[in-house]
Simulated assay, not measured.
Amino acid sequence: MKRTLINLLVAFAAALPGAAFAHEFKVGEIAIDHPWSRAMLPGAKVGGGYLTITNGGDGDRLVSATAERAGTVQIHEMKMDGGIMVMREMKGGIAVPAHGTLELKPGGYHIMFMNVTQSFKEGEEIKATLVFEKAGPVDVEFAVGPAGGGAMSHDAHAKGHGDHASGHDMAAMSGDPQQDIPARMKAIFETADKPLAVQPVVVEGDWAIAGWTQDGRGGRALLKEKEGGWSIHLCSGDGLKQAEALKTMGLSDDEAEAIVTKLAEAEEHIDPQTLALFASFEGTMMVEADDAGAHDQHKAHGDHKP
Rank of each mutant, 00 (worst) to 15 (best):
K226C: 00
K299T: 14
M114K: 15
S236I: 02
D180W: 06
G28R: 07
T101S: 12
T4R: 03
S231L: 03
I181L: 10
H161K: 11
M40S: 13
A171F: 11
F132W: 08
M286Q: 14
E268P: 02
T248K: 10
L104P: 15
V86W: 03
G123S: 12
L240P: 09
L275Y: 02
S166I: 15
P146Y: 00
K186G: 05
L130D: 08
G47C: 01
A65L: 00
A22N: 11
D155F: 08
M170C: 11
D303Q: 10
S252Q: 07
A289H: 13
K2D: 02
E141F: 03
K262T: 04
D193V: 04
A258C: 08
L41F: 05
H157I: 05
V131H: 14
K194N: 07
V201E: 01
D290Q: 14
D303L: 13
D180S: 07
P272L: 09
A19W: 01
M85D: 07
E265N: 08
A266H: 08
M85I: 08
G48C: 07
L16R: 01
L275T: 08
M173W: 09
H110R: 14
P195K: 00
L102N: 10
A143V: 01
Y50M: 08
I75A: 08
W207L: 05
D206K: 07
F12V: 10
M152S: 05
G47M: 06
G250Q: 09
E190M: 03
H34A: 13
M40W: 00
I259E: 06
K247H: 05
R69G: 07
G82M: 09
G219T: 06
V198Y: 02
Q118V: 09
Q179D: 10
K159L: 12
V10K: 01
I270D: 01
Q297G: 15
A289C: 14
L16M: 04
E227F: 09
T101E: 15
